[in-house]
Amino acid sequence: MASTSLGRRLVACLLNVSEARRKDLVETVAKAALYDSAGVRREETTVLNIFNDHDYNRSVITIVSTIDSIREAVLSACEKACGLFDMRTHTGVHPCMGAVDLVPIYPLGEEVGVEDCAEEARAVAQGLTERVRGTSVFLFGWADSPRQRGLAQRRKEMGWFKKTADMQEIRPDVGPLPQKRFGLTGVGASPYVMNCNVTIDTQDIAMGRSIAAAIRESTPGGLPGVQVLALPHEGAVEIACNVESVQGTPPSQMTAGQPWPAFTIGGQPYYHAPASLITARVSELAGRHNVSTKSTALVGFTPHQCRGLAELALSQEIAEYWKEQRKIHM
């Protein structure tokens, strides 16, 4: 699809909320991004996808808008979610700390940089704590100025990976000490992060963790930009990967039949590990234990898909695009 003037100004927010079992309420949050309190549609904004996971009790809402319109769309969705979801009654196997757990903003268009997204992220963090009294935020990525600590590091610092974090020990960047109802929200900006989840046909979580460790970026021989957890999921184990975009030139060799996807932000080259390679690597490692893979799911598309679908949806004035395309499976 040819680039459009609108497309060059687009950004994405993959809004993570701690609810999936009441899908009607999650859709209510998505619609809050699209329509104001009078029901008037916000211009230049679409929701491409709602990914619900029952076991995790977590949903990811893919909101795409122009850099000029993203703030109000995201803030309205967050405000609605805080009114509907209560962390005091939440259950699910996926780690989480907030009713609105994660608010990452990514540049999609050539005329938007990561710093532009960081400015909007900081405004969202401030706006959320002002609109919903009692909400608390930690910042990550480019929004965490000047240190620019990554999401994984900030989550460790906040105790996100613990089963029961001590909220009274947490010092948020914006807002008061976290309250049990709202919990703690991460808000940040970075180059696009793709979510790729590979399910292996076993209930052996120790095996899953060994596979996760093997493909993690920090492991020698691991995959660039891949942060990963192994979690029990629907009677199996899911290798849940955050696939970060890496600055630089991608490897020249083909992997699993595909080149490494590449794009630019502010004229700088970036690339990310292809989902096919992640699937192949997990399949290879699981196969050593005579275990097969069951499926691979992308949550929120690749950067190219996200922009292309957003341009299509906006050109056809389709606000609720998720009704056209619920979920991508590979």
Rank of each mutant, 00 (worst) to 15 (best):
I200K: 02
A273L: 12
L15C: 04
V112P: 03
A33I: 04
S210K: 14
R155T: 03
S295H: 00
T4C: 02
V193I: 15
L277M: 08
F182I: 01
V17N: 03
P95Q: 09
H233Q: 08
K323T: 03
V11D: 01
A118W: 02
I61E: 04
Q168F: 02
A310R: 05
T91V: 10
L231G: 05
D68M: 03
G186R: 01
S190R: 09
L139H: 01
R42A: 10
S315I: 00
G7Q: 08
M194G: 00
T219V: 03
L229W: 05
E120F: 01
T202W: 09
L184Q: 07
R149Q: 12
D86S: 06
V11G: 03
E234N: 13
G113C: 10
R326G: 00
S283G: 14
T185W: 10
V137S: 02
T89K: 14
F85R: 10
G134Q: 03
G287N: 11
S315E: 15
V11H: 07
I278G: 04
G300C: 12
C117D: 00
P224E: 07
S3C: 07
A32I: 07
Q203D: 14
A236R: 15
I61G: 07
V26E: 12
G208F: 03
V93R: 08
I215Y: 07
V291W: 01
S245N: 08
Q179G: 15
W160F: 15
L285F: 06
V93Y: 09
N49D: 14
V187L: 05
N16K: 13
L128A: 11
A256H: 05
Q168M: 13
I278Q: 08
A2L: 11
A2E: 13
V103H: 12
S295Y: 02
L15F: 07
G141Y: 04
Q153P: 00
E284A: 13
P176G: 09
L10P: 02
F301C: 11
S218T: 15
D86Q: 07
E234A: 14
S245K: 04
S136F: 11
V243Q: 10
M207D: 02
I67Y: 01
R216A: 14
T164G: 00
G113V: 08
S218E: 15
Q179P: 00
S245R: 04
T296C: 12
T135S: 15
R147Q: 11
P261N: 11
Q325N: 12
S292K: 15
G39M: 14
A99S: 14
H304T: 12
S283Y: 00
T91I: 08
Q305A: 14
A165D: 05
P303H: 05
A256M: 10
A313K: 06
G134D: 03
C13Y: 04
Y106Q: 10
S145Q: 13
T46I: 06
G267H: 11
E44R: 13
F140W: 14
A121C: 04
V17C: 04
